[in-house]
Design a protein around this nucleic acid. Sequence first.
DNA 1: TGAGAAGTCTACAATAAATATAGACAAAGC
DNA 2: GCTTTGTCTATATTTATTGTAGACTTCTCA
Lengths: 153, 153
Amino acid sequence: MISMRSKYALKALGYMSRTSEKESFLIADIAQTEGIPKKFLEAILLTLKNNGILSSRKGPGGGYSLAKAPAQVTIGAVVRAFEGDLAPVQCLSESASASCPECADEDTCGIKLVMADAGNAFASVLDSVTLADMLQRSEFERQRRQQVVDFTI
Amino acid sequence: MISMRSKYALKALGYMSRTSEKESFLIADIAQTEGIPKKFLEAILLTLKNNGILSSRKGPGGGYSLAKAPAQVTIGAVVRAFEGDLAPVQCLSESASASCPECADEDTCGIKLVMADAGNAFASVLDSVTLADMLQRSEFERQRRQQVVDFTI
DNA sequence: TGAGAAGTCTACAATAAATATAGACAAAGC
DNA sequence: GCTTTGTCTATATTTATTGTAGACTTCTCA
């Protein structure tokens, strides 16, 4: 289960990608449009900036903007900014205190081997989809459903 | 990230599957062998029983035993007993209050569509591996490493 | 038939983490 | 130098996880 942080980040980035006529976005604007607590979003956008996904300018006329094209930002990169590596068990995490203390032999632990496969499968999907793909997919789905409605009415 | 509950459950089941000469296991025995807090394990085994993975008998000579052969129990079934459905976002969860309140149009939400793919990829792996597979995999890895050691010495 | 062995249940304590908020601060533009 | 806007630090709130305590039930076997 990914955190609200990641979800809010994806919502904010989706909004920014979708609204290409604007080139700069105020925190307050994004927060209100996407229904995200403003102060919370503030920290989220900062994290995205520190991960090279957003850039910012202070002062009047300032705000946040995408540092890369939506087709250059994978969902995996966004989620990883908040969830760390996407390891399903701690002993698979590169960062911090990785090993599980109670594991007799970590190298041959079956749980670890299986979870590595599952985690890789999960991460592969997120790494293969960009913000642009996500929007396109959503739009495609919208039109598909629209057509179904048209036919049934 | 899966919870300790799931990990402890897999460790306990791994031990029970591996130790086929015993047919009944005491909570205290499993707890000590696998280094799991006894009282915590107690609740975990009960959950596994309620999910049809274990059976139990009270009284002297009693204890827990596997309700199915290790090859009949998938890792997915075990993990699901503790993590519910393996949905990476709440709005994909069948159980409980599923929908995300702030989502404008859940049907066409790109985040949901992408996460559904990722979650399915994750679950597919766990559903395709049984306890027996997990043990075999671990044993295979142990022998592989053993050989490497033999060659290098 | 009753003593002891084992699982079952309820309640709760102790952390830890996620979520969210407040308010001071810094930089940029006019 | 005033306003706008992002940045930072600290902290509150809530929720979930992890773990513990103790009473209770069921079973077996002497």
